[in-house]
Amino acid sequence: MKMRKGLWIQVLVLALVFSLILVLVNNISTNLIRSGLGFDFGWLNRTAGFALAEHVLPYSSSDNYAWALLIGWLNSLKVIFASLIMATLIGFFVGILSAGRNTLLRFLASLYVTFIRQIPLLLQLLFWYFVGFLSIQGNLIGPFKGILNISNQGIVILGINLSAEFSALLIGLSVYSGAYISEIVRGGIQSVSRGQWEAFRSLGLAENIGLIKVIMPQALPAILPGLTSQYLNLAKNSTLAIAVGYSDIYAISDTIITQTGRAIEGFILLLISFFFLNIIISNCMELLNNRLLSYQKH
């Protein structure tokens, strides 16, 4: 009797899921018919007709939509990759400080983390863009003119030109993710037993050498899983670029969807591209994790 009851519930759930999918497909096809558009990707080859302020590869408004999407994709990768590195540096630096012995530095670190985590990322990005960059008059750092130049046009460092939009996004994402990463790093360091600290100190090793050679290798296995999920969050949060006018993949898709009305195809491309990006990130981290854990398999 019990078996049969379980079976009936399964059939019911299956029927529910099926009908939901049917409703969705029906909805999509009705909309496609109503708008007179079929389901195809031929439009990718049409001329985009809009200009892009930032492009890693050559781009003009006479290029097609596919090329514009690729440019957007590369812009996304650029900001994600740069923020990932900066967030990691900030996170490890602050995390190590907050696990350290200096009371003042520990307090400052916890102030940073507490403050950043209470404020929505969107507000932080808008702050860095409008207050942080657009409100600057002239060059912020006078004496270093030529090496580092910060103005409402963005940052110029050693001849490399970063737009205000890119810079605001880079700083906003790094400072935000850095706060979360620092907590993960702190937890990892504190998971290493007290005895390991005493052992390297008793050997006359300096704090920084002990941290690098003894503590960090043991803390990393505890840090990596949390780090991976922060990296994935950072990649997904980069779509907030649209708020500060940076042409990432989402901002460009949005423009294209408005122009062509191809919302379904546009979103399918977006979902697939983010899916693959995050698969790549998590696989790389998995690889790193396996390498690090190899010593535990002796």
Binding site: S193, G195, Q196, E198, A199, R201, S202, V214, Q218, Y295
Partner: peptide
């Protein structure tokens, strides 16, 4: 002092990695 004084602990505290 630590450069000239060795210490052995109850829990060994060898570096496992």
């Amino acid at each position: 002092i630590r450069r000239k004084v060795g210490m052995v602990f109850q829990q060994f505290n060898l570096f496992p990695h």
